[in-house]
Design a protein around this nucleic acid. Structure first.
Lengths: 192, 192
DNA sequence: GCTATCTTTGACAGCAATGTCAAACATGAC
DNA sequence: GTCATGTTTGACATTGCTGTCAAAGATAGC
């Protein structure tokens, strides 16, 4: 195998993810990716085909990292603590950076839904896994707290709420206000 | 006053709103607006200045209509019924059209947040008014149902959830699944 | 009917991005 | 060291959109 890739693929995809994270799928151009990764535009086309492909790979990294973080955050002794910690993690994730870059998966759901079915599926898959993760935690923890709703429904509502928070963040809701919304949900689901 | 506008402004803005509704702020070009409204691109620039201005006016119409609809939907005898009807209205609003066009304000929050502070403010204003509307309803209705959380918090959570649903809709959640999520929230807030 | 005033129209120059390609380049295998 | 193979590079043609403008067109007021 002669004629070998000159750039570090892991490094490049990680940089690409940074670019997507702060510009969003739609707004990032191949030139932005070239600049961000330090790899020429032509090389990117040659290696991956185009923006969508690069995005999907970078988004794979994102998904893995995000799910790992979420899982760690959920590791608390009570349902309430687990969910609060989980929401905290989400909020931290998308209020990072100056200015805050927002939630990549939410942005993608909205921006890419129409123009990239594959991106849409990737987001959908992420949300499904997230729901599974939350449900697993809720159903495992037996802290004696009852909820007025079943746990499958609760898990889905929790995931859906993370999307709501991501949107609210975009219109200048402060992290504390977001946390308060999350706490309201957790309290209404599992009490104080 | 000679030299008079040749097109019906109300009609044009309403058509423009349709265009924005199904393509989103970012993706619609001045040419799309010209085609959609039947008014030449040059005339649109002359009359309004540019896309942002047209959007803001069209979005004004949208806001008024949406708030009126929401208010009507909330007019029910119990908190539970009012909220379920409200969510139903929202879900109907953004699953209309084939393919469904999604929620314009949510899309705008995400797409326009970075590139149009004025659009961002307009969305923020809409969400604030919506919250006020919901809160007013909840605090007025005295159906003897208690909630584990205060009504201000509940109202904000309800609004935030409409955003969550709008995002979920974009990744192929069916209307019924969305309604189920909404019902879960309502039940957890005010019981069955 | 004339005129002043505003509107419409089509054309233009400019910009940013896309996707492709031939030539130059690097390197593993022999 | 040579070669075959895949990679990098800069250039190119194309596309779609933007914002502006001069000339032509419409109309209210006189």
């Amino acid at each position: 195998m002669a004629g070998v890739r000159q750039f570090d693929e892991r490094e490049a995809l990680s940089r690409a993810l940074d670019v997507f994270t702060d510009r969003g799928f739609r707004a990032t151009s191949m030139l932005d990716l070239a600049t961000g990764t330090g790899v020429q535009r032509g090389s990117l086309y040659h290696a991956y085909g185009g923006k969508e492909e690069i995005f999907l790979r970078a988004f794979g990294e994102y998904t893995a990292g995000f799910l790992a973080g979420a899982s760690a955050a959920l590791d608390r002794p009570t349902k309430r603590a687990a969910l609060l910690s989980f929401f905290d993690y989400c909020i931290q994730t998308f209020t990072a950076g100056t200015p805050a870059h927002g939630c990549l998966s939410t942005r993608t759901a909205i921006e890419a839904a129409t123009e990239s079915p594959r991106a849409e599926s990737a987001v959908r898959a992420l949300l499904d896994e997230l729901e599974t993760l939350v449900y697993a935690k809720l159903s495992t923890l037996d802290d004696g707290v009852e909820s007025p709703v079943n746990l499958h429904g609760a898990a889905r509502l929790v995931v859906s709420t993370t999307r709501g928070l991501a949107v609210m963040e975009r219109v200048r809701y402060e992290p504390d206000a977001l946390r308060e919304i999350a706490e309201t949900l957790v309290t209404s689901l599992f009490g104080r």
